[in-house]
Design a protein around this nucleic acid. Sequence first.
RNA 1: GGGCCUGUAGCUCAGUCAGGUAGAGCAUCCGGCUUUUAACCGGACGGUCGCGGGUUCGAACCCCGUCGGGCCCGCCA
Length: 533
Amino acid sequence: MHWADVVALNLSKKGTKHIVSTGITPSGEFHIGHLREILTGEMISRAAKNAGLEVDFIFIVDDADPLRRVYPFLDEEYSKFIGHQIGNIPAPDDNGKPDYARFNEDGWNYADHFLNPFLNALKKIGVRPRIVKNLESYQSGMFSECSKIACDNADKIREIIERVSGRELADSWFPWSPLDSNGSLEGVTVTGYEFPLVHFIDSNGNTGTSDITKGEGKLPWRIDWPAKWAWIGVTCEAFGKDHGASGGSYDTGKEICQLFGYDAPQPLVYEWISLKGKGAMSSSSGNTIGPMEALDLVPPEILRFLIAESKPSKAIEFDAGMSLVNLADEFERSCARDLTAEMNDESLSRRRKVQLEDLFVAIKLSSIEENSKSNSSNVSFRHLALLAQTKSDDQMVWNSLGMNADNPPSSILIDRLSKMRTWINSVHFPDEMRIKMINEVPTEMLQEFNHEQKSVLENLTRMLNECPWDTDSIGSCIVDAAKSIELSPRIAYGVSYICLMGNHKGPRLAPILVELNKSDIVGQLNRCLEFVN
RNA sequence: GGGCCUGUAGCUCAGUCAGGUAGAGCAUCCGGCUUUUAACCGGACGGUCGCGGGUUCGAACCCCGUCGGGCCCGCCA
């Protein structure tokens, strides 16, 4: 059974109405790793709906969290905002400096700046969660009841956190972080509490009060999380393995939740996505790839498939090079198969059947529109990559695929080609997929040349030199170089690939050569010819 | 210190939760096609399932141990 269906099955045992929650702090650029958080939750929601459950899928934006430090993409000017809530400070402009103008005019804040492009990407991926913004929720009093319970039970919560996480909390620790008069959550020490006011002294020695029913501060993360479960009514949440560790925030949250009179949601811990060969994904390293960037390279189904086909416990290694090519091709191949028919084969082993079922569900979950079948273009990415590299004109690509005015390419395919061109022009496109002509003489291969190959090379060099430089003529030249001395054209192609690409095989040659400089090609062949003679 | 994940064909992995004679894709090789889409079609090669014990009629799968790899537990999703 597919992992999403397993979770759905568990949920169905607990009731028919469910709220599946996900949450992210928009403290910087989003990357593919964040997509796992959202898509894992979204796929559980879909599976639960298919199981006949009533499901609300929400995305909690933790914009009440403070800015932790001046990230590499930020100007040093942001140091004065450290400790301030990211939904309350200006967004960085192109130079990483705070954009006060936009902030003052239309409230464009730091959190929105990073969140909005991600939401746009989600739309393209077919994810439409109900957005819950943490900052607003605090300000509108949604957290009031839980905050009161937390403050009233400060000792119990302290006991839970210290016992479960094994960490010792400072004497001054209190389950509420007040905002000081400057709007910072850092360096503030709580000195007293009587509902609804928390008294504090800030880092400058100024005293003040914070009303916990008005969002003049926030609950610390380990309490904030279970408080959200309680007031929203979350019944299922997928979260990263950091929270899932023993003594982590899920463990403490589970107990703290009880104080709010609520049972913790069904958990699902997922593994991280890392960049292949480059370690963990991080927005500060230039190598990271964001959802928006990936969407420029491949159709959105592919990104969904990445998450759907891997069990959440599986660490995913990803890059926008060969990993993506293989992933995309696997998706294409799988779509083209008639899995329903394959599953009906009675002779299959149980395991094989389960495997097919999981793949079937994974593909279904990869479709952008719920419950629609994913469309396959029946053209592999490798193939399309070749065509896109050898033909600068789209129409020539369609012709090559046997498409014309009567049999036009689908909009899916047109989009796919356009993305392929973007990919090819990007740094992500893998070298091994790139068509490359060689300049050096492939001496080792040429040493193996027999008499026939030498003769063909001689013919080829001479004929190409006299050849009009268009696709048909070049094609004829290559063939004639062999045929004129009663040899198979195959030999001529083999010779061409070795001399021009340093390989025994290759893609259709004439359309590539026509794009290149004739004298360069003939020159290369001449150097090879000199060597064999 | 606590915990999680992981080790299966050259590569990437599925299969482990419900034990029943080892699976897929890629790569490689062979064949077909031959003015050739590194395309496509057909086939082959390829694994003592990290290691050692145990349970069982039967273990990649369950239990115990062990070795290797990755990661999380600093109020940071």
